[in-house]
Each structure stands twice: as structure tokens, then as C-alpha cells.
Design a protein around this nucleic acid. Structure first.
Lengths: 219, 219
DNA sequence: ACGTGTGAACCGATTCACAGCA
DNA sequence: TGCTGTGAATCGGTTCACACGT
């Protein structure tokens, strides 16, 4: 009744919340595991068993992009995996810029998880004269003054901010000026960004304080 | 018309989503900044100007716990700050256990942000014989085998999991067995926890993949 | 019979609109 | 007048119920 090809991938874009996309990413990871284990077909019931999602939600999430399953059978692991990679855009390598070479930045630059997902940190910036020029893993730490130039030249679209709060907004400004469209923000500042730029905040203090709130009233 | 004291703090507990609590934590942080700057009174309009929240949402969030503002005037920074600290339970020190002394764990154990919020990492565990017994900052890295014993003895209620995916579920099990009620999970696994335990996931791969999805379709 | 895909119902969270107080 | 606090309306996301394909 309805055309199910990738026109939908675009046309339904507006309806697609970041929560859905994060779940797709989660599904993808689990499909990869299943593939490794040699599983060929899986039902929505089975795959959501180990996730915090219902089988209906799984099917609904996928339905925004098309019908990938066979009634009475389920989903072919390999082909659904490819579809999701395609939808998310992770079938190509993505270069990432990291700003802030402090402790957190250092840990992130060596975080194995990134490479596993076709994500590659290709440059690291800092404003501290003492670390500029030093190596962080394979990468030379560059002066944050060269940020715009470098990010533009390398056509980087995704960046991670791991600076102290004070520097975060100006770094953010430079990044967007240089064409960055997605920012993973580890600083506790709420960033102001121009339209069309997407920010994802990882605010550890907020997370921990909410845990404390709920933990406090258990027993 | 309605009693506004801390009975509500408990009775409204059920209505309070973790999103509200995280925002309260954000408000608190900004109130601290304002206090430092010497601001004595603030309106909901002003304080939300630099946050991703509307002034109505600010007032609504607070209204779950009582009316702290004065019509026509606003909120007294100092006293609202105290109220929020009280609600969140961050006016006392909280001891945290960290599991996983790898790169991420290492960065976290030295993350200055924690101490700023009355959070103190008091023990670090790992299962790698090569690092057990070594110092991580001030702390000795302990064998994960001693986890339950130590966590019970120190009455720790909050923990951070920064282990590889494979170890996460068993660590989580031990933590809850030892009485932990809140877990900040940096591993990409969806944890199964008993009722009454609160998990907050920081899944960097999902965050980044969602950024990629949205960045991909901008220009 | 089994499992997908989806309109409809539901539910929670945000926003609106305004009453009431300083 | 200025700003808070809150019922009512609205919006979006999740779940239900079931039609349909294999």
C-alpha cells in the first residue's frame, strides 16, 4: 500500500526523535553481537529480551524507516544490520575532533569503543601551552587557535567537547563556525548553538545527583 | 490550601521523573554560580535564560516540592539553593565506588567535578592482577573479589561501572548484592537490576551515532 | 499458528493561560 | 505592574489491539 523504500528515510525524518535514533544504535550493536554468534534470524520478542525496550517499540521504531521483517518469521540479522548501518550512516568512517586534552579528553582519545563503531578521533586540541605539541596516543595535541582552520580543512562534522566549563562555549562557537554539526558535550555547561547543530550532553554531575535522589529514599 | 512542607517531598515522590530531578540538579549548579557572583534574587525568567528550559518549566519543577518564590519578586538565591540541596540530598557527602580502573575509570577517578558536588570516590576495583595494589590517585586499586565485602562495610550506595561490556553485568550483580541503590553505567550493556535499584546509562556510542544521524542530513 | 506493521487509545510531560499575591 | 504557582489544553511518545502476510 505504501512505498517502503528509502524515500521514507528522508520524508519521515521530522518525526524521528533522538530517542528513537539512540535505540536504533542500541539495536544495531546487539545485531552485531548476534551476527557474531551466528544467529541468522531473530524476532522482535527475542532481541528486546535483553534490552530495555518492548517488542512493539522495536517494531515501531523500525517502522519509521520501512518494514524489514517477515510476518511469522522475524528479521534476517545480517540484512537488518545493514539497513540500520545505512539509516544511521555508520557504514562510512566518521572523523571526530576532540577538544580538551585533560584527563577526560585523554581517556576519550584512547577509548577503544570509538574505533569499533567507525568513529575516529583525527585531531585533539587544547589551550594549555604545556601540552600543545605533545603526543596523545598517535595524535599531536594542537593549539586550539588552529581549531577552525583544521576542522574546516578536514571537513569534520562531529566533535567532542571535554574542556572545563569556562572554555566550553567559546570552543562550541568555533566548532560550529568551522562547520561542525554534532557535538558531544561533556562539560557541565548548557551550550548555545545555531539552528541545525545538534548537541548531546553527558552531564555526569546531574546523572549522579539524580541517582543520589533516588538512592536516598530506598531503605 | 495545600500543606507545602516536606510531606510533599515524599508524597510526590511517585510523580517525580528523573528528568525533573536532573533539571533540579542543573538549576542548583546555576544557583551556586549566581551566589558566587553575589546575586541575591532571581526570577524564573532570568535563570532559565542560559538553560535549555522555559521559565514555566522551572516553576513547575519546583512546584512539585513546594512554593519557594515570591510573586512579583522571584527567588532568593541562597535559600532556594539550600532547598534544592536538601531535596536532592547533596547537602551530605556521598561515598562512591568505582569499578574498572582502565582508561575511563582512571579519568573518572581523577575527575575534579565529583568533589565539587560532595561526591567522593572512596574505593576503586579492578580484576586485572597487573593493576591491583597500584595507586590510582590517592586510592589503592582493590581486587574486585573484595567488592561486596568492602562496599557493604563502607555502606556505599552509589557506584560507577567503567568496565568493559563483558564484566558489567556480573559487577552490577555484586554491587546490588552489596546494597548499592544507584549505578552510573558507562559500559554499553543494558544492565538487569533488581527492583528499587536505579541505573543511569551513559552510552557514548549511542550518543555519537545519533549525532551522526542528525549531522548527516544537514547540508 | 506465529510474528510483523500500524491506527487508535492511552499516558506522561510540556506549554498555555490565568488567578492571585507582593 | 511583575512574577509566581497551577489547573487545563496540548503535544509527543508508548502501549494496545488487531489486521494482515507467511
Amino acid at each position: 500500500m505504501k512505498n517502503r523504500t528509502n524515500i521514507i528515510l528522508c520524508s519521515k525524518k521530522a518525526k524521528c526523535s533522538s530517542e528513537i535514533i539512540k535505540r536504533l544504535s542500541l539495536y544495531l550493536r546487539n545485531l552485531k553481537r548476534l551476527e557474531k554468534e551466528g544467529v541468522e534470524t531473530i524476532s522482535s520478542d527475542k532481541i528486546t529480551q535483553f534490552l530495555n525496550a518492548s517488542s512493539v517499540q522495536f517494531r515501531k521504531d523500525l517502522s519509521y524507516f520501512g518494514g524489514f521483517g517477515k510476518p511469522g518469521v522475524g528479521y534476517k540479522v545480517k540484512s537488518l544490520l545493514k539497513e540500520l548501518e545505512n539509516i544511521l550512516g555508520v557504514n562510512q568512517e566518521w572523523d571526530i575532533a576532540l577538544v580538551g586534552a585533560g584527563r577526560l579528553g585523554g581517556a576519550l582519545s584512547r577509548f577503544e569503543g570509538f574505533s569499533r563503531f567507525n568513529l575516529r578521533i583525527v585531531c585533539v586540541f587544547d589551550n594549555d601551552k604545556k601540552v600543545i605539541g605533545k603526543k596523545r596516543g598517535q595524535l599531536l595535541i594542537q593549539d586550539v587557535k588552529d581549531l577552525v582552520k583544521t576542522v574546516e580543512r578536514k571537513k569534520i562534522r562531529i566533535a567532542i567537547i571535554a574542556t572545563p566549563m569556562e572554555a566550553a562555549q567559546s570552543v562550541c562557537h568555533e566548532l560550529t563556525k568551522a562547520g561542525v554539526k554534532g557535538i558531544l558535550n561533556f562539560s557541565p555547561l548548557v551550550l548555545k548553538v545555531p539552528n541545525g547543530v545538534c548537541v548531546s550532553n553527558v552531564d555526569m554531575a546531574c546523572e549522579l545527583e539524580s541517582l543520589i535522589y533516588f538512592a536516598k529514599r530506598k531503605r
